[in-house]
Design a protein around this nucleic acid. Structure first.
Length: 557
RNA sequence: UGACCCAUGGUGUAAUGGUAACACAAAGGUUUUUGGUACCUUCGUUCAAGGUUCGAGUCCUUGUGGGUCAACCA
């Protein structure tokens, strides 16, 4: 703890250090998170959010939340609200109020006029197909548009006409005049404004022309004084254009730095594919606990602190990656181990009767809430003759390594007594309906004088005191670590049919009757669980967040 | 068959040109009234071949492999 270790820096921090050393922007650091409000945020966004906010915080800087809302046909305020909620839930607060690229539409229009006046932009009447044709291919240079050399005056008049609604959608575009022979496709006279009569979620019908990403993003960065604009690797080819606009517009020189976005095994991060899961009913909603969305992870019970810690531990670089989901789960367990109360719950109950225990007797046993705490608190748990234990905790003809209940074997009931299994009761189908045991009266926890050894310890609930509840158990959503990584197969083929198991008849210890929704617990020996958004004391619903590490697994017959 | 980016244990990241480190996973062990937690041990000659250097994961060259780029999407 007292050891101060020089922490290693990622390549972005190295760049920032160099910029600070060079005296850039007076050492000021300002980043931004720029989502497009056209979908819900997922684990990939979470890592980008952590990166932008954490790095600014580390250098005493600021981070803006800016919605990149330049395409009115796909965007909606519904997403704006959800995104704001997700960012805040993750534990970050942006500088001031949230910003919008649409706030800069007037400025951006002015920038376009500036470019035209400099002879660096022109109105093109070519169709979309013709423009695509002119662009050439990565291996062949492009050709200049026949409209490329219109006069500045004509361009000014035409662009004004575009804004005034004189032309049909798609009839004309404004293009930057850069270099049709550039090996970089993005420099081949990119379209920077298009005519689109669509209702914008914030500017309504005020505009019928909208700037393209390349003419909005970098300029927005510049307007906001963003010093380091962090984006994913796929934008590497946009950087020369990003810089070209800054240079010719003579505006604040934000710097774009690309990083490799983070992929997590068994998860997908394509908005379109996520949407398909929802639309086809393969998951119940965007916040289904199986979804890799921030809202899904939240509902499942992943703590924000665990996600932040995951991002820290994963680091940042420029190579393609697939992080094992086990690391995320380890972070979740680490956080939950330190913070949750241990409760007793039986998901798949089987009756256990202690034949030599007095009828009608109830003892209140003392249970420790969270042993990971320095001064743990306790609660009482009722114990009686008739209990429920986990069906998987009993086995006939069990192997030697089975440390649980079987005929003729002893086992400790957590916080209670050591019991001896005498036999079972079966129904006409041969199904075990009851396990019969006897207890050692002097083996009670805390005052065990029996001298009897028990290899295993089971969790249990008292049948008469237990409350009924629903416990949802989730497995991986896909059966393949990279569902979208197979060219010959659709990701849906890897959908895990067993990804959701609902235990409607779970038996819960009485203390669980009073807990609020959205509360995390450890159910002893089973894993971490989180009360669902729809949980109520009269109809308890818990979601399994993640299991305990667990080593021994019964062999499947 | 162009340009650009990348290459370190199973996975993800470290390493002023100077003993390859950390975490997760896996395997084994100690402790344990959770098969949990905690603790210990094991697991890589850094894609390849040349070159520079007293010394290369790091610099240079050439390969090999992977990725990105041709929306009036972002």
């Amino acid at each position: 703890m007292s050891e101060i270790r020089e922490e290693s820096k990622n390549f972005i921090e190295v760049i920032i250090d160099e910029d600070i050393a060079a005296g850039k922007h007076g050492g000021r650091i300002h980043t931004r998170f720029p989502p497009e409000p056209n979908g819900y945020l997922h684990i990939g966004h979470a890592t980008a959010i952590c990166l932008n906010f954490s790095i600014a915080k580390k250098y005493g800087g600021k981070t803006n939340l800016r919605f990149d809302d330049t395409n009115p046909v796909t965007e909606d305020t519904e997403y704006v609200d959800a995104i704001k909620k997700d960012v805040q839930w993750l534990g970050f607060q942006w500088e001031g109020s949230e910003l919008y690229a649409s706030d800069y539409f007037d400025t951006l229009y002015g920038y376009a006029v500036t470019l035209i006046n400099k002879g660096l932009a022109y109105v093109d009447d070519s169709t979309a197909d013709e423009i695509a044709e002119q662009k050439g291919t990565p291996t062949q240079p492009g050709k200049e548009s026949p409209y490329r050399n219109r006069s500045i005056e004509e361009n000014l008049r035409l662009f004004e006409g575009m804004k005034a609604g004189e032309f049909e959608d798609g009839a004309k575009v404004l293009r930057a005049k850069v270099d049709m022979t550039s090996p970089n496709m993005h420099m081949r006279d990119p379209v920077i404004y298009r005519i689109k009569r669509a209702h914008h979620h914030r500017t309504g019908d005020q505009w019928c022309i909208y700037p393209m990403y390349d003419f909005a993003h970098g300029q927005s960065d510049s307007i906001e004084g963003i010093t380091h604009s962090l984006c994913s690797l796929e934008f590497r080819h946009h950087r020369p254009l990003y810089n070209w606009f800054i240079e010719h517009l003579e505006i604040f020189p934000s710097r774009q730095i690309e990083f490799a976005r983070r992929n997590v095994s068994y998860m997908i991060t394509s908005k379109r594919k996520l949407m398909k899961l929802v639309q086809e009913g393969l998951v119940r909603s965007w916040d289904d606990p199986r979804m890799p969305t921030i809202s899904g992870m939240r509902r499942r019970g992943y703590p924000a602190a665990a996600i932040r810690n995951f991002c820290d531990r994963v680091g940042m670089a420029k190579r393609d990656n697939v992080i094992e989901v086990e690391l995320l789960e380890a972070c979740v367990r680490e956080e939950l181990n330190a913070t949750t109360d241990r409760m007793m719950a039986v998901l798949d109950p089987i009756k256990l009767v202690i034949t030599n225990y007095p009828d009608g007797k109830t003892e209140q046993l003392i249970a420790i809430n969270n042993p990971a705490l320095e001064n743990p608190t306790t609660r009482e748990i009722p114990f009686s003759k008739s209990l429920y234990i986990e069906r998987a905790d009993f086995m006939e003809d069990a192997p030697k390594k089975f440390f649980r209940l079987s005929q003729g074997r002893n086992v400790r009931l957590k916080y209670a007594y050591i019991i001896h299994c005498d036999g079972v009761l079966k129904d006409e189908n041969g199904e075990i309906v009851e396990v019969q045991c006897s207890y050692y009266e002097n083996s009670r926890s805390g005052s065990d004088e029996s001298g009897i050894k028990a290899k295993g310890t089971l969790h249990w609930v008292s049948a008469e005191h237990a409350i009924d509840g629903q416990v949802n158990v989730y497995e991986r959503l896909f059966t393949d670590p990279e569902p979208t990584g197979h060219e010959d197969k659709d990701f849906i083929e890897f959908y895990n049919q067993d990804s959701l198991k609902i235990n409607k008849n779970a038996k819960l210890e009485p203390a669980l009757a009073q807990v609020a929704a959205k509360t995390a617990f450890q159910f002893m020996r089973l894993g971490y669980f989180y009360s669902d958004d729809e949980h109520t004391p009269s109809a308890p619903i818990f979601n399994k967040t993640v299991g305990l590490k667990g080593a021994w697994k019964p062999k499947k017959k």
